[in-house]
Amino acid sequence: MAARAHPDVPKELDRYLIPSEQIIFEIRRHKILLAEPFLSTVLAFVLALMVDNWLNGSAPVLRNIMYGLALVVLARFVYKWTDWYRELFLATDRRLMLVYGIFTRKVAIMPMSKVTDMRYDRTIPGQVFGYGKYILESAGQDQALSVINFVPDPDRHYQEISAVIFGSGAGRDSRTGMVSSGSGGALPVNEPENLWWNRK
């Protein structure tokens, strides 16, 4: 069996990458995406148990309906978790790639050479929970991958992508194979103004 060109990423990604591509990072989106489905599942089972206790053995049909609805909400959570787990956001020295889909796998690609500008937004919840959104502008045409939301550790990943797109003279760590941001200069970040902790 031939050695894998990219042993540090899931085996599935090898079919989408060429051997000469250098991996910058490979991540899943922030787990905040799972907060609502998880809380909904907990609430559904709490309500089902409360109704079961309140009926005290009577109205078995209603109790079965409540537990059935709770199981539907649980199935929704499992689906959302599987969708989150199967989705991978990958950056190489040549392109950005989003691999997603549970049953039908889809690949959205943005070549680095097509990116003319990159905006980085962090809302107040994003600053609190540690995620951000990247908005990519391309030369002359709409691309399949133009908005990337819920990116974890967004400051570091923004610098790594910017180092490739805008040629900041970044080097690559020979031990990890990761691109460093190089110059360490300030990069533009859009954050809400007049935050209470910045007021004087």
Rank of each mutant, 00 (worst) to 15 (best):
M1R: 14
P10G: 05
K11P: 07
L13D: 06
R15T: 09
L17G: 08
L17C: 10
L17F: 08
E21N: 03
E21M: 05
E26A: 13
I27F: 11
K31L: 10
I32P: 02
L33G: 12
L33K: 15
L33D: 07
E36R: 14
E36N: 10
S40I: 09
V42E: 08
L43A: 15
V51F: 14
L55F: 14
A59D: 14
R63Q: 13
N64Q: 08
Y67D: 09
L69N: 02
A70V: 10
L71I: 11
L71H: 04
R76S: 07
R76T: 10
R76P: 01
Y79P: 07
T82L: 14
L88M: 05
A91H: 01
R94M: 07
L96E: 01
G101H: 10
I102H: 06
I102R: 08
I102C: 09
F103S: 11
M110K: 04
P111E: 01
S113L: 13
K114P: 01
V115S: 00
R119F: 12
Y120K: 02
P125W: 01
F129C: 03
G130T: 00
Y131H: 04
G132L: 03
K133L: 04
Y134S: 03
L136N: 03
G140S: 06
I148Y: 01
N149A: 14
P152F: 07
D153P: 01
D155M: 05
Q159R: 15
Q159G: 15
S162I: 01
V164S: 15
V164G: 10
I165S: 04
F166H: 08
G169N: 03
G169M: 07
D173E: 11
R175I: 00
R175F: 08
V179W: 11
S183A: 11
S183M: 11
G184A: 09
G184S: 08
L187S: 04
V189D: 05
N194C: 04
